[in-house]
Design a protein around this nucleic acid. Structure first.
Lengths: 340, 340
DNA sequence: TATATTTGCTTAATCGATTAAGCAAATATA
DNA sequence: TATATTTGCTTAATCGATTAAGCAAATATA
């Protein structure tokens, strides 16, 4: 068995025609006879020919690869977005390269470098929590490569974006908690420098004001929203003289940490303190009590991000209008906030 | 600003030397003067030169990319393995391409094609549950590309493998349950055609026999081990005339489904039925009662898989001996099986 | 001082696929 | 029948980086 890979040349020699003819035959060029096409395809199959992607990408200036950068793959939200991106792009002949930033700015920059180096035709990304300096993303744009952000994006960056209405989602949550009879609602949020978390905070503050509830500064905490952060911030809230009777946490993971603390302290959820998370991670339905949360439509976000890339890839240089697509999120009420 | 990408030629023209000299200077060839190297690097920086990976990979016949195939990224086990593979390989100048099979054989085959097409230098994979036909993996080997399997691998395939001692782990679990006073131990396992699940089943059966417990066929069930499968199989077990007093589930996800059913039926865990899962997914520590489970050392598996690839990549054609590395798993006892 | 070696580059070929340009034969049109 | 068009290929250049081969100048060695 020949270990060397088959190339166009091998097929050309076998049929005594030029490699150009072979290439055109395989790409169904109209100027090649059906007879030749059939012969070429037959021999290609016999010799187990696999096109060399590097060569064609180099020549065509197009790799048909799309890079995806996520903070981590280890969450249902990101994993589901990726799956949907892949589904849409595979159908159009693109393959995706997934990289993780692990919420680190430095890793994110090196991911961008890797992807540019691999000559991806575009990048779809959700930013690391740490990221405040957008120079690296500007670099992508300056190379003329389509860039699409989702979920964690920035307004400053003139770039296409897919996300949900975070501000309104906060309103929905606060109003739901008020309907359940809660009167002192706390918020464990992300850091304000990330747009989505800033919007959730603004939504929370405005909804509190709108309904004339106490807007106590001590009830608004910011963190990285890991499970551990959720535990710490919940402990802080419990140490207040005037405890909250509801906590809205801007991530399911931190909400889980908060729930653990409440259970360890034997505090009744939802009756003493009601709890709402954000993201609809599968475990929210599995814990006891099940966590109320926000469905972010991860599948839709993935599909839209992929389709936005496809649009950008088609028009090439031309278009200047930006796509900012905002989906309506959905509140899922479960036991952790169901008082009535 | 020039939108065209900088190439070696641009640097060569700027300095009035040959592109060959530029290439060598950037690669620190000993036959290039320090003066020239400095000048080249300076100009490269000024022109914002980024090497074209496609061109160098084509010429060198080496892409410095490693493909990773996992059933899904959406589990802590796989996500952690990937993270560790990436860490080790990045240090050696490799980048990884992650693909998901979604437990589908068809998708797995198309992932392999994609990776071969992208000219990866190696593939590290864990097989889909569905996979029984190994022809596609043989294809990888026949191309002379290093292939390393982890967790889900096959004995038939003559290939390097990293995993844990599944057979012994089953023994540990069964003996732990016996120590807790359980006398009728059921096993919700995976399908036998997958080697690891077969080993877990064999370990369970042998441990039961060794301790002269009832080896009731009805107590041994096979499934795909999703949450939903766990629910269904638990229901089946509850319908037996002679119920088990302990259930060992070969996956944390299915164990979670089983736990949900027990809770819905108000069956006390662990006192009426003790429960043990497999995999140490983070949620096992979060549910109530916390699930006993097996720590598979995902980090170690990832590191060893990456290092095995590096060894194979170095020696090229030569070696014929296979690496089969088996890690000792660790039982983590939590409330779901702690009777005493 | 004469010869050998080293240094620092250049020239030209190459990886494999694609494509612009062009040519001869076959076919269509006037 | 004479000219125009179409068909089916070939030739040669190209994408960008690397590398074998080789040459002239500088340096080392006898």
């Amino acid at each position: 068995m020949a270990n060397k890979k088959t190339t166009l040349k091998d097929i050309a020699i076998a049929l005594n025609i030029s490699t150009a003819a072979v290439s055109k035959a395989l790409n169904d060029d109209s100027r090649i006879s059906i007879k030749t096409k059939e012969a070429v395809k037959k021999v290609a199959k016999e010799l187990n020919y696999q096109p060399n992607h590097l060569a064609s990408a180099l020549r065509k200036g197009k790799s048909n690869l799309v890079g995806v950068i996520v903070p981590r793959t280890n969450s249902n939200f990101f994993s589901s977005v990726i799956q949907n991106i892949e589904e849409v792009l595979n159908k159009k002949g693109y393959n995706i390269i997934i990289t993780q930033s692990n919420e680190s700015y430095k890793k994110e920059c090196s991911n961008i470098d890797t992807l540019l180096f691999t000559q991806v035709d575009g990048i779809i990304a959700s930013m690391a929590n740490e990221t405040t300096n957008l120079a690296y993303f500007e670099k992508v744009k300056s190379k003329g490569i389509p860039l699409i952000l989702f979920d964690r994006g920035e307004n400053d960056l003139n770039v296409d974006y897919i996300g949900i209405n975070d501000y309104d989602s906060s309103h929905m949550i606060v109003e739901h908690l008020i309907n359940q009879g809660c009167k002192r609602i706390a918020h464990i949020g992300g850091y304000r420098h990330t747009r989505i978390f800033n919007n959730r905070i603004r939504g929370y503050v405005d909804a509190i004001k709108k309904h004339q509830l106490p807007a106590d500064e001590q009830l608004l905490l910011e963190s990285n929203l890991t499970i551990e952060d959720g535990r710490e911030k919940m402990l802080e809230l419990l140490q207040l003289k005037n405890r909250p009777d509801a906590v809205y946490v801007a991530s399911d993971f931190a909400a889980l940490g908060a729930l653990q603390i409440l259970q360890e302290k034997n505090i009744q959820v939802p009756n003493e303190i009601a709890l709402v998370g954000f993201g609809n991670e599968p475990f929210t339905a599995m814990v006891t009590p099940a966590l109320s949360t926000i469905n972010q439509h991860s599948g839709e976000i993935g599909k839209m991000a992929a389709n936005t890339f496809l649009e950008l890839a088609d028009v090439a240089e031309l278009k200047q209008t930006l796509n900012k697509k905002i989906l309506q999120a959905e509140l899922i009420v479960r036991d952790s906030s169901k008082r009535k």
